[in-house]
Design a protein around this nucleic acid. Structure first.
Length: 266
DNA sequence: GTCCAGGTCGTCG
DNA sequence: CGACGACATGGA
């Protein structure tokens, strides 16, 4: 739900309240990863090695990667396969409106009606045929989401890995990839946005493009096979460092889409 | 009409 | 392994 709300609204609405057992200020601090020092996201050697790119990045260095709910991250990114951002957002909205519960926020500008994403319980019990109406009519995707929700409820291996605290990026991804409809890219997105693993580095078509154009990585011309995917991740880690690889990657991602591809919204 | 979108999976050589 | 088609739709 919160991913649909701007920081402004969150502060308006939840000031003085308590969310998830902690005070609102603490929640917001964590949700917007305000603990991350943006100056440390890109390594020192990056700005001296790519001065022109560093200059282009300046307006995007205030960007925040959210610590989203793990289950919501799984559902939303499972909707993001080889289709445009516009359709992805529509799918998520439709899932929320059809299966989620309504939430009304009282803001200074009047009430704001929204729908939260449905719980694992609701999606686990959902009819895949009906869910498919919300997933771009993709039956397979709908079945995968229902199947994932059931696994989530019964304590999936991926979740056990998360809860254990000690879990390498590789083993976490392997566990997530056990689920139908989750490949390496989606798994990395779940780790980055839903599990607060800012070292995870998802590679999609846009990332592949800027790895080629901005950093001259020749392997980025070839298709994203599992082998090449791993190779490109290592190459990115050499350039961006290992601690906040994905955080930096997300900033590069938006800069690439806006400044180079000239895409307008999100 | 063609091509590309925040991919994944099964199949075939 | 690596290439290729299916899955689905819409905007440029």
């Amino acid at each position: 739900m919160l991913s649909q709300i701007t920081a402004e609204v969150v502060e308006l609405e939840f000031e003085g309240d308590r969310i998830d057992g902690r005070d609102a200020e603490g929640f917001i601090h964590n949700y917007f990863s305000l603990d991350v020092d943006l100056h440390g996201v890109f390594p020192e050697r990056f700005r001296t090695r790519y001065p022109e790119l560093w200059n282009l990045l300046q307006p995007y260095l205030a960007l925040r990667v959210l610590r989203q709910d793990p289950f919501e991250a799984m559902v939303t990114f499972m909707c993001a396969q080889g289709i445009g951002m516009h359709l992805i957002r529509r799918q998520v909205s439709m899932i929320a409106e059809r299966f989620g519960t309504e939430v009304t926020l009282e803001t200074g500008n009047g009430p704001l009606r929204m729908h939260a994403l449905p719980s694992p319980q609701v999606l686990a019990a959902a009819d895949p045929i009906e869910l498919a109406r919300c997933t771009n009519n993709n039956r397979i995707r709908a079945e995968n989401i229902v199947s994932m929700a059931r696994a989530f409820l019964s304590g999936s291996p991926a979740l056990a890995c998360v809860g254990s605290g000690e879990c390498t990026l590789d083993s976490l991804r392997d566990a997530l990839c056990l689920h139908r409809g989750i490949g390496m890219k989606i798994a990395d997105c779940i780790a980055l946005f839903g599990l607060g693993r800012f070292d995870a580095f998802p590679i999609d078509t846009h990332v592949q493009q800027y790895l080629r154009e901005w950093f001259g990585i020749d392997a980025a011309r070839k298709s994203l096979t599992e082998k090449n995917y791993r190779y490109l991740q290592e190459a990115a880690r050499d350039i961006l460092g290992g601690r906040y690889t994905g955080y930096a990657g997300h900033i590069l991602f938006h800069c690439w889409r806006k400044e180079v591809k000239r895409m307008s919204a999100f």
